[in-house]
Design a protein around this nucleic acid. Structure first.
Lengths: 122, 122
DNA sequence: TCTATATTTCCATCATATTAGAAATATGGA
DNA sequence: TCCATATTTCTAATATGATGGAAATATAGA
């Protein structure tokens, strides 16, 4: 993961409403949630919700698929994992066992089982 | 870690200059860096740097100690670890082995070896 | 095709964060 | 005590982000 990607993800998550949305989707798992359901659970006006969803989308933290009239959003686990890895890389000048690199295998959707790429810092 | 703490940390890290500062301190390790050195390396005016340091301080992401005339800043590893844990907790409705909780033992300062508390969500 | 549902885009308003010069504070040495 | 260094706080200008109503778009069913 490059710095700008990590930054975009952190900017996106650094807002209460978006953190709420993201965590709701993390909890919902790969099945995801329709935009309407998210708005209902978090009591958000449609336009406001849509604004925040687009921010999260832009940061690649969530994906969506259409299902009939609904748009189903779900958390992008691999990007989340890459972010976690990025944040702890190069810590302590890579010094010793006391500073282990992050374990990025944190949260995988049920279906998928590919190894999350150890993000490389640039 | 509670939501507001995690949010504060994410808000703080969601800014390029602060992410640069934080990563610099992560890399510097427990020895830390004097404010002046940070400003020099990142080419920041003193007032701007001080503003961002106070934001990071407020989010408990960094600590500082005085050493003669210099203030030495360093990354607060335990808080970082708690944040990583928080972000992946409760994912996939806690479903199965495919959704392992985050391993918080990511980055420890050299001197310390206490077990990082598995942050609890409220 | 007409209508209802689901969601987004547009837009104007409002709120908050960032920037950096200048002044203030703290420390240590001569 | 006086001065130089290190850093913060104050302040005002500027920039950016968030909000939500209204209109526009997309889908599906009658």
């Amino acid at each position: 993961m490059e710095k700008q990607e990590a930054l975009a993800a952190l900017v996106a998550l650094g807002h209460e409403t978006r953190l709420d949305i993201f965590r709701l989707l993390m909890q919902a798992g790969p099945k995801g949630l329709a935009a309407g359901q998210i708005g209902e659970r978090l009591a958000l006006p449609a336009a406001t919700l849509s604004f925040h969803l687009s921010q999260l989308k832009h940061a690649d933290l969530i994906t969506f698929r259409r299902e009939s009239r609904s748009l189903i959003y779900s958390a992008a686990y691999p990007v989340m994992n890459a972010l976690l890895a990025y944040m702890t890389e190069n810590c302590c000048q890579g010094a010793a066992a006391s500073c282990e690199p992050a374990t990025p295998s944190t949260c995988q959707p049920e279906e998928r089982h590919e190894t999350p790429a150890r993000a490389r810092v640039r």
